[in-house]
Design a binder for these strands. Sequence first.
DNA 1: GTGGTCTAGACCACC
DNA 2: GTGGTCTAGACCACG
Lengths: 136, 136, 136, 136
Amino acid sequence: MTERTASDRLTVVIAHQSEEPIYEQIKRQFRQSIMTGLMQEGDSLPSLRQLAKELRVSVVTINRAYEDLEKEGFIVTAAGRGAFVAKVSKESLKDKKLKLVEEKLMESIELAESYGISRADFIKMIDLLFPRQKHG
Amino acid sequence: MTERTASDRLTVVIAHQSEEPIYEQIKRQFRQSIMTGLMQEGDSLPSLRQLAKELRVSVVTINRAYEDLEKEGFIVTAAGRGAFVAKVSKESLKDKKLKLVEEKLMESIELAESYGISRADFIKMIDLLFPRQKHG
Amino acid sequence: MTERTASDRLTVVIAHQSEEPIYEQIKRQFRQSIMTGLMQEGDSLPSLRQLAKELRVSVVTINRAYEDLEKEGFIVTAAGRGAFVAKVSKESLKDKKLKLVEEKLMESIELAESYGISRADFIKMIDLLFPRQKHG
Amino acid sequence: MTERTASDRLTVVIAHQSEEPIYEQIKRQFRQSIMTGLMQEGDSLPSLRQLAKELRVSVVTINRAYEDLEKEGFIVTAAGRGAFVAKVSKESLKDKKLKLVEEKLMESIELAESYGISRADFIKMIDLLFPRQKHG
DNA sequence: GTGGTCTAGACCACC
DNA sequence: GTGGTCTAGACCACG
């Protein structure tokens, strides 16, 4: 094999009883793996059938996830060859991360504001909720 | 009229194309109104049929929203008389608010962590995003 | 019925033997109808099952077409209500049209250039191929 | 070597992620080279195995491309000797070029018509898009 | 072997 | 009734 394969490090987990559609769970986990650098440009993704078998879901479900990820620019698929992590510039990657976190954060800020929770109290909440880095 | 009615101030808005179910949109907006004090104990809610007509949705949908709000303790319904904002202690109200904000906030913290965004950078984001109070 | 329905004017045609996937044929024809103004904002599209039955294809195939059209911003779908032509500003509509035609045209220009066909000869071809408007 | 070989000037490029099949990409690029005169009658094409190695694709894929090109009359293959550019009369060559450009052009004309873009506006687009010849 | 497309039939929440 | 999701099994072109 001349290509890195993600199979070893890869652990996709499915919750069948979740509200979140299975294909969304898969998309989210691959996105995460790529954005955290766990999977890198050129790495191969599991084949449709292989992953479908592993996760015990339909091939169509995996296909849908891969298709969406390709449209989002995270992977490229080549018929007859497989699916691979696409090239994403580090710049745009960092932008994507910050944008996603900002969006989520903005939701909670808006909620806090509508409830009349003060800036200071809100920051205090973070102080309690956000874990401090561990020291070596 | 011997009862305060919320109809004047009340503006429920429906987005048919949203993913959020219509009855959830309605519930959320009433909850918000009650928690922010816009609607207060004893205020009457619009009748099922009136609101259904206004929002151009089915009576069944409004009924489902009212039923849920009653189960959550935000309103009480009296057959033949209508629905009214229930008594909610200030204590439990504040608890509910904090809990909701905490939940939302926790989501963004988890996201930030998974992307390796530091505590300091996260707090900086809030500094930028959370508007400062206006001076008198 | 308070909503315009597209059923009367609507004629989607499927070529099963074509190379173009069925869902692409459907997408293309609806896009066309919307961009030419045949279908307008708020008009309802046929229901998944109804159109599937009419065209004798699977519901999934129609669903895929509608999904894609929604992502492209041509229609909005609301679970339990149906699919409707989305609001598209006349400005952006004209931009879309011009952009699409420009893209196609650019392909033929590039081909002509690589074959050493002159500007003048190319324009002559259009003179022959593009039908003149009929006179009243 | 007694025969001109195209290997030096030749640069076939493969896009694995393209929708266009690899063998079609190869065919298209050889056709182009022959029609533009870059490759001429009698020039040798790379051997199956050599090109397959260079492009990192299967020999079967290259073979299919060469077979098709032979059917189209662009090359001749001689078992054990290799593949060579065939004799193509200037007349038939020019015809082929014009036919290909016409086909592409017709597509954009049909698109423009369906969008109600006028003859005049279409010709204006070409005026803008088709680069003028450079002056000596 | 691979991905791309399609089918028929099913279940769900929502209206 | 509606759209949204999922399944199992199939055929195709491509490598």
